[in-house]
């Protein structure tokens, strides 16, 4: 096991061609230590989501390398990248992405099922307990609140003990109280389990739960902040917005 869970080198991603070429990522170098919680922030269009998609193997970078747990996965084909997502990357989306016809416990066990194994019931129960939903295992997503659904999604992402848990605006669809619960669950998974979490967000309060914030501007790294507080992050974001507007 290497000490770095996820790293990207010289990552670029451009869309379109000719005159209409748009550079979403313009050369990014980042490394995420095992057991760290990093927030990736930036104004709209700064390349946050593209970065996450490339890191997860959902999108192919135009150039550069992506290493998951020390393995270079950049040139893997779709089949291998699918297995990568299933086994070594945990995903938490803004829209929860639970399957509506599976219960909370079955949703948590799904990655294991897709890999052709029966999930360990004890482990599924323990994960649901960890996210505070031990008594909701038999509920369908439709009867859970948004915050509860997102916590189920986090339990699902933790099932395979992935190299890295990628979260894309995990609190974007939640109110501040339930968002706090979700963020605490993410924070605890880092502190208690040594999980690595990379979270894209535009909410300074969410970012304050992380160990470090990386700011992206126009597809480049525009700054970093260790031990962030919500106020400091909000100030920095306002500053970055001014930079972007000024140009």
């Amino acid at each position: 096991m290497t000490a770095i869970a996820l790293e990207v080198h010289e990552l670029t991603r451009t869309f379109g061609s000719g005159d209409t070429v748009v550079s979403a990522l313009a050369g990014i170098d980042l490394a995420f230590r095992r057991g760290s919680f990093t927030a990736v922030m930036g104004p709209s269009g700064s390349g946050k989501s593209t970065f996450l998609a490339c890191a997860a193997g959902l999108d192919r970078p135009t150039s550069g390398r992506v290493l998951v747990g020390g393995t270079d996965v950049t040139d893997w084909d779709e089949e291998r990248r699918t297995r990568l997502r299933r086994e070594r990357i945990g995903f938490v989306f803004q829209g929860f992405h639970l399957l509506p016809y599976l219960t909370a416990a079955q949703n948590v066990a799904l990655p294991s099922r897709l890999a052709g194994r029966r999930a360990d019931r004890g482990r599924v129960g323990a994960l649901l307990d960890r996210v505070g939903l031990a008594d909701r295992g038999h509920h369908l997503p439709g009867s859970l609140s948004g915050g509860q659904q997102q916590r189920v999604a986090i339990a699902r992402a933790l099932l395979t003990e992935p190299d890295v848990l990628l979260a894309d605006e995990p609190t974007g669809a939640l109110d501040s109280t339930t968002a706090g619960q979700v963020l605490r669950v993410l924070r605890d998974s880092v502190t208690d389990l040594g999980q690595t979490v990379v979270m894209v967000t535009h909410d300074p309060v969410a970012a304050s739960y992380a160990d470090e914030v990386v700011f992206l501007v126009d597809g480049r790294i525009g700054g970093r902040m260790a031990q962030p507080t919500a106020d400091a992050v909000a100030g920095q974001m306002a500053h970055l917005d001014e930079l972007v507007t000024a140009r």
Binding site: T82, R86, E87, F93, H97, L114
Partner: peptide, 15 residues
Amino acid sequence: DELRRLRLLGATPRQ
């Protein structure tokens, strides 16, 4: 949406 969700979670197209 649902089929894409499965793909994102690591289901192969064949699955």
